[in-house]
Design a protein around this nucleic acid. Structure first.
Length: 596
RNA sequence: GGGGCCGUAGUUCAGCCCGGUUAGAACGCUGGCCUGUCAAGCCAGAGGUCGCGGGUUCAAGUCCCGUCGGCCCCGCCA
């Protein structure tokens, strides 16, 4: 049944044919996307990576190919020799790119067949992701997935082309490297030649790219795989790709300018969109105040309002108690939606708030002069007046409150804001809202470890004017760090680094890292800093997240060819897996896990 | 580590609350008819470890316990 290609050479991609090809004799090769058998005529949509074209098998043209075409099933692989003709007017299909033409088949070669599919090769499918991943080779045949991976390719191409034009040099750094503390959990790789010792896969090439600056390369970049052994999310895989870059003799503005130019080039190349640069900047403090998060989606309003002062001495304990313990009270005013939020929905929102750690969710529904709410009766006239003023409350509004630690209030209300924004279609789709977050705190106090830890990483430079605060008010020291946010997703972050060993030492001291410890952990970088390190800084962008947003996908799994499930399992390769005891013996590793 | 939703035909789901005939539907699949379809159409048909294990019961897809797996989130992710 199978036939050979023989001397046939493909002349065109199915999806590239058009009116320009009328009358041409073509040889096409691809997959049977669908077959419509009319007994007399047989129509086959033939698909390759560029698209679909209709093949017509007519017994009056070729009895033999018509008979063979009768056998065809979905996803069989065939080669067709035929002529490109214009379709009869009434049969033109405006839904496909090649809809004005069709190919009259004169010869057919069946190259391979296919088992019946677990799911159709179409864009709009409702199939469990586990099945999609197990049959990833079929999933990737779906045009939307093919487009996503092609988009990813374009992003990488535009990145390389732009950075090359700006004098950046792509340098590879090792994947087998040294475990570093302070950060994510490492993936470890045992060393056979050094039993009992381990390499770590890099969480990012941070230390080595700084080393390259010290080596004088001046401008480095790399599109590089990074590994972090942490729990997965829709936007987090254990291995992911960064656009990593570093520059010497620069300030924050220099790095930001390069990134803005690069992103502009990427959007132009991939979406044909001209975006405005520079991007707006917002301080960390302002972002936390107005949005309750350091990665605000600024495509819509619905901002948070701090009303802590109104309730500092309130009789209403639910609000005043948290304030007395150092917490805050904030509110969101959902304008004019009182009629659109049922009691049931308010209850669901309360459950949502609780799932994020809130004790409850206070709300007020404003109907005329009446405030419908379980809490109104506890509010004084003065408090009501203040609320009305601060939140500009009007008829039809719905107010949501959070009163707790600042952490919980911001977490709950920022997520509530996103949920309400989606629920009421307040978020402008098809818009790319970039935003820089700047002036991050350098340090934050870690209660569980009872010490200050760096918010970014321990090589981030403090602002010069804040250095003296390191000893007195560490939490007030601002970092020379910057994050870039797109539509509420953090797509990158970087900083100007510490290039002087005295300051580096001081910072290690501040985070409770002794000299010996520091040497053991970052020895080579500390040493390199002693040999003429230039001022330098850089950034790393999440290629997967950026591509996801450009693709309009809701998970980075949809822009990664072979992703893993939430448990870090690859259903296609079935990794991870037990290994041969011989391998373990060689590595001098004994496994301490009970057999299932 | 924790919270939520889910697991029934190849696929997507209904049935589960309130236990009781032969577990249904759609798409897909198989066979037949059909010369302008493109979600082709018409006729006929096949297809089930109700995730897995245990328990309750005369009887379990349905109730209970445990377990495995998927998705979303919190923690975690410098």
């Amino acid at each position: 049944m199978f036939e050979l290609l023989g001397d046939w050479k493909r002349t065109d991609y199915c999806g590239s044919l058009g009116i320009k090809d009328l009358g041409r004799e073509v040889i096409l090769m691809g997959w049977v996307h669908s077959k419509r058998d009319h007994g007399g005529l047989i129509f086959v949509d033939l698909r390759d990576r560029e698209g679909v074209v209709q093949i017509v098998f007519n017994p009056q043209v070729s009895k033999e190919s018509h008979t063979k075409a009768d056998l065809l099933k979905d996803e069989w692989v065939i080669a067709v020799k035929g002529t490109v003709v214009r379709r009869p007017d009434e049969t033109i299909n405006p839904n496909i790119k090649t809809g004005e033409i069709e190919v009259i088949a004169r010869e057919l070669r069946i190259l391979n067949r296919s088992k019946v599919l677990p799911f159709p090769v179409e864009d709009e499918i409702k199939v469990d992701e586990l099945i999609r991943m197990k049959y990833r080779f079929l999933d990737l045949r779906r045009p939307v997935m093919r487009k996503n991976l092609m988009l990813r390719h374009e992003v990488m191409r535009a990145t390389r082309s732009y950075l090359d034009s700006k004098g950046f040099i792509e340098i590879e750094t090792p994947y087998l490297t040294r475990s570093t503390p302070e950060g994510a959990r490492d993936f470890l790789v045992p060393s056979r030649l050094n039993p009992g010792e381990f390499y770590a896969l890099p969480q990012s090439p941070q230390l080595l790219k700084q080393t390259l600056m010290i080596s004088g390369f001046d401008r480095y970049y790399q599109i590089v795989r990074c590994f972090r052994d942490e729990d997965l999310r829709a936007d987090r895989q254990p291995e992911f790709t960064q656009i990593d870059l570093e520059m010497s003799f620069v300030t924050e503005d220099d790095v930001i300018e390069v990134v803005e130019g690069m992103i502009k080039a990427i959007l132009k190349a991939t979406k044909g969109v001209d975006i405005d640069i520079p991007f707006p900047r917002m301080s960390y403090d302002e972002a936390m105040l107005r949005y309750g998060t350091d990665k605000p989606d600024i495509r819509f309003g619905l901002e948070l309002h701090d009303i802590t002062e109104v309730f500092r001495n309130s009789e209403f304990k639910v609000f005043s108690d948290p304030v007395k313990k150092g917490g805050i009270v904030k509110a969101i005013n959902l304008k004019g939606k009182a009629q659109h939020l049922s009691r049931k929905e308010l209850d669901e929102l309360t459950e949502f708030a609780k799932s994020l750690g809130a004790k409850g969710l206070a709300w007020i529904r404003v109907s005329g002069d009446e405030w419908q709410s379980p809490i109104t009766k506890f509010l004084s006239e003065h408090e009501k007046k203040e609320l009305k003023r601060l939140l500009t409350i009007e008829d039809g509004d719905v107010i949501f409150f959070g009163a707790d630690t600042s952490y919980t209030v911001n977490l709950v209300l920022s997520n509530l804001r996103l949920r309400l924004g989606n629920r009421f279609n307040m978020i402008e789709q098809n818009r790319f809202a970039f935003l820089w977050i700047v002036d991050f705190p350098l340090l934050e106090f870690d209660k569980t470890e009872n010490r200050y830890v760096t918010m970014h990483h321990p090589f981030t430079s403090p602002k010069e004017e804040d250095i003296e605060l390191l000893d007195t008010e560490p939490e007030k020291v601002r970092a020379r760090a910057y994050d870039i946010v797109l539509n509420g997703v953090e797509i990158g972050g970087g900083s100007i680094r510490i290039h002087r060993s005295d300051i580096q030492r001081k910072l290690f001291e501040r985070i409770g890292l002794g000299e010996e410890d520091a040497k053991k952990k970052f020895g080579f970088l500390l040493e390199a800093l002693e040999f003429g390190a230039p001022p330098h800084g850089g950034i790393a962008l999440g290629l997967d997240r950026l591509t996801m947003l450009l693709a309009g996908a809701s998970s980075i799994r949809d822009v990664i060819a072979f992703p893993k499930t939430q448990k870090g399992f690859c259903p296609l390769t079935e990794a991870p897996s037990p290994v041969d005891p011989k391998q373990l013996l060689e590595l001098r590793i004994r496994v301490d896990v009970k057999e299932r």
